[in-house]
């Protein structure tokens, strides 16, 4: 039996309302999307939903006490709490340059965690 699943595409800020026709976990068709990104999103969202994760880590002797960091690619949605817990363990020393890898291959996902900005040392 085919069934319809409705969700909103988060591939870009437009937020298209997608209708996905599914049968036995297979995507039969997608409507409501305005571009190809929507198709990819619908396929990913129904098989392996992923999200970008952005948070902060402690940084010693920095201009600010925290350094914002982000995953270079979206990580599997169910793993977000564990990914956050791993990132929380990181503690750095200023200065740090933007896009420095602060955590390599987080939880074996093959995805690195990067510094969102440069952080100069405290003056």
């Amino acid at each position: 039996m085919a069934e319809e699943v409705n969700f909103i595409c988060t591939a870009c800020p437009q937020g298209c309302a997608l209708t996905v026709l599914m049968e036995n976990g297979e995507v039969l068709g997608v409507t409501g999307n305005s571009c190809k990104k929507g198709l990819d999103y619908a396929n990913a969202e129904t098989s392996d939903p992923r999200r970008m994760v952005a948070t902060t880590v402690k940084i010693r002797n920095g201009f600010h006490p925290l350094l914002p960091v982000y995953t270079e690619r979206p990580v599997p949605k169910p793993m977000i709490p564990q990914v956050l817990a791993e990132i929380r363990k990181v503690e750095l020393e200023a200065p740090v340059v933007m896009k420095t890898v602060v955590l390599e291959n987080v939880l074996g996902t093959g995805i690195n965690v990067l510094a969102s900005r440069s952080m100069p040392a405290k003056k």
Binding site: P13, A54, P68, Y70, S116, R117
Partner: peptide, 30 residues
């Protein structure tokens, strides 16, 4: 420091239109 409110917007989604890259706010500002 330079950058304005973007510096506190650490979530992603900035720059998709102009830079074709999904950046956090501080990265876009920098």
């Amino acid at each position: 420091e330079l950058g304005g409110i973007l510096l506190q917007c650490i979530h992603n989604g900035f720059g998709l239109e102009l830079l074709k890259e999904d950046l956090p706010g501080p990265g876009y500002a920098q």
